[in-house]
Each structure stands twice: as structure tokens, then as C-alpha cells.
């Protein structure tokens, strides 16, 4: 099994599909864009429901606070832009206008991480999870593939309160299906195993599955967990996996010092002391390049996960 065996699909298309379906059913759904509606696919909602779509131009601060005003009057507001502009650029607006008053605003961010590719570091945000995790009242979701994105958006629409959903630009391997309900705060065990746990989020879940397949050839049984909700974190599933397998590897397309891996580390340090290794982007900015090249350059491949698993296995029981 390798990357080529997977069907590649667009998270953005599935998010837009879910949004349009929601828009048809629910009049309370409104959508805000900031001159990127064709890139983040809110243009599809705008086509069907022009009166409920507000394009504010390149004014993300305004977009977030207008979304807050709409939500304060009973609307379920989806504000969508690139992750770099939907978090860092508007942190204070999210903090004061949305998170503090716990308003029903969903920040749907695309183009997160280095897989943005050619646009380079300005557009490749690698610290957005840190920013959103830090906010009280904020729920943080990173779907693993396109179908899970679809299910997550439906769940997010039903949940009342602020949510951040992170997805990438690239088409990514489909590893789940569109059936069943997405449960916010619940991690999914995609593959059972006893020797080591591979906890992935976003695009890295597919790499964890590849790594597990490869480890199997060496008689190592790896559990693979899709940690799609980063906050609130599923402590139960993580601790259970750590206790039963005795070692944990995390994998994320995000800065490894402030993202999902550090959230898991905090969870383990308080609950289950097992060897752990984080696979993620080192503490550097990205650069232009092809997304696959960038994934290799910054150590985000199945091979990197396998290496980390061996490191953890070597430290087990010491």
C-alpha cells in the first residue's frame, strides 16, 4: 500500500457541499467571505442563497465581527477564509467578538499548513491550532479527509458555539466515508494495534495508516487514531491507547511545538507516562514548493512516522 492507492479528494468541495445542503434546510445559516469565496468554495452557497452570503472584501477583521453581530441575533454564521487570515490576522476579533461571548460563529479555514505549496510562508500558517486551542470556549476540529470534513461540518452546524475547522488546499487521500455522524470531541480508532499508537490529525492520518501497514511487515502492530477534534481533546481514547500500547507517536501538518502533539503530550504527562515522539513541522516558517516536496522537506512522511515509532519502541519498558 502506498499513497497512490488512495483516492484523492478535495476537502473544500465536501465542505461546500455540506454548506449548501445546510443552507437549503436551515434559514438561520449565513455565510461570510473575504474576497476568497471562489477559493474557499463559499461561492457555491452564494450562487444558491445570494441574500444570505456577505462578501466583505479583503477585510477579515470586519468579517469576524459582522459574523458575531449576525450570531448575536440568532444566526448560525459561517465565516470562511484561508487559515492564515482566519486566525492570526483576526485573533483579537475572534477573541473578543466571538470566543468571549461564546457566539455561534464557525470559522472555516482552508489552505492551512505547508501543503498550500507555491504561495510560500506568508500563506502557510503552521501555528493556527496553537492560537485557536488557546482560546477559552473555542472548539477546534481538523478533519482527516474530505468525507470526514463533510460529516464534521454537519455536526458543527448542529453545535451551538464557536468552532474552528481547519483544512488544507490540496486534494488528500480519502480514508473514511460519508456515513455516520461526526461526534465532536471523539477520536476514532481506524486500526487496532498493541505495540504502538499512531495519533494523526488532518492529512497526516493517511500517513499514519501507511506507516502502520509498513510496520506490520516488521511484525509491529500499530494502532491508528484519527484525532479530528483537537479541543476538547479525547483524553479517554488517548490514555487508553497509551496504556494498552505503551508508546505514542503523534503526526500533524503543523508546528510540532504548539499543535496537536503538544496537546497529546499534556494529556499523557498527566495521565499515562509512556514514551512519545512528535512528528510535525519544526519551529520554522515554510517556503514555496510542490506540496509533496514540502512534506518530505519538513519531515511529514510515512517514513518519518515509522522512524518515530521505532524510536518510541526502543524506549519502551526502559
Amino acid at each position: 500500500m502506498n499513497l497512490k492507492d488512495f483516492k484523492l479528494e478535495s476537502q473544500r468541495e465536501y465542505w461546500a457541499k455540506a454548506l449548501v445542503e445546510l443552507g437549503r434546510k436551515r434559514k438561520d445559516i449565513v455565510v461570510l467571505s473575504a474576497d476568497l469565496s471562489s477559493s474557499v468554495k463559499t461561492s457555491l452557497f452564494a450562487k444558491d442563497f445570494p441574500e444570505r452570503h456577505f462578501n466583505v472584501g479583503i477585510a477579515e477583521q470586519n468579517m469576524m465581527s459582522i459574523a458575531a453581530g449576525l450570531a448575536a441575533c440568532g444566526k448560525t454564521a459561517f465565516a470562511s477564509t484561508f487559515a492564515a487570515f482566519g486566525t492570526g490576522r483576526v485573533y483579537d476579533q475572534i477573541r473578543q467578538s466571538i470566543a468571549y461571548p461564546k457566539l455561534n460563529v464557525k470559522i472555516i479555514a482552508t489552505h492551512a499548513g505547508i501543503t498550500v505549496g507555491g504561495d510560500g510562508a506568508t500563506h502557510q500558517i503552521v501555528e493556527d491550532l496553537a492560537l485557536m486551542r488557546a482560546l477559552p470556549n473555542m472548539t477546534v476540529i481538523v478533519p482527516a479527509d474530505a468525507p470526514e470534513t463533510y460529516r464534521a461540518i454537519k455536526a458543527v452546524a448542529d453545535y451551538i458555539g464557536p468552532v474552528y475547522v481547519r483544512m488544507g488546499r490540496a486534494n488528500i487521500p480519502t480514508i473514511t466515508n460519508s456515513k455516520g455522524k461526526f461526534k465532536i470531541g471523539k477520536a476514532t480508532v481506524l486500526r487496532d494495534g498493541d505495540d504502538v499508537s499512531l495519533i494523526g490529525t488532518g492529512i497526516m492520518v493517511s500517513r499514519c495508516l501507511l506507516a502502520a501497514e509498513e510496520l506490520k511487515k516488521h511484525k509491529i502492530s500499530a494502532r491508528v487514531i484519527d484525532l479530528s477534534t483537537i479541543k476538547p481533546i479525547d483524553t479517554k481514547t488517548i490514555v487508553k491507547a497509551a496504556r494498552e500500547t505503551g508508546g505514542v507517536v503523534t503526526a500533524e501538518e503543523h508546528s510540532s511545538i504548539v499543535g496537536m502533539g503538544s496537546a497529546v503530550a499534556m494529556c499523557l504527562v498527566e495521565n499515562a507516562h509512556v514514551p512519545m515522539k512528535r512528528v510535525g513541522i519544526p519551529d520554522v516558517f515554510g517556503q514555496s514548493g510542490d506540496s509533496d516536496e514540502l512534506m518530505e522537506t519538513y519531515g511529514l512522511t510515512a517514513e518519518n512516522i515509522i522512524e518515530a515509532a521505532h524510536d518510541v519502541l526502543g524506549r519502551k519498558g526502559r
Partner: peptide, 29 residues
């Protein structure tokens, strides 16, 4: 703090955000 005090319609304090919230409320109407 709009969640604390009845009648307070918006949480403000970090300057410059209230007019945008007002636009959102007006659009909702």
C-alpha cells in the same frame, strides 16, 4: 460582557469592533 449583564448587547473593550457587530445585527434584522 454580554453574557453577564442583562441589556448589554455586545462584549466590547478592544477598540474598533462594535460598528462591525452593529452591521451584522442590522443585516440580521
Amino acid at each position: 460582557d454580554m453574557r453577564a449583564c442583562p441589556g448589554v448587547e455586545a462584549s466590547t473593550g478592544s477598540e474598533g469592533q462594535g460598528l462591525s457587530m452593529g452591521v451584522g445585527m442590522a443585516l440580521a434584522a
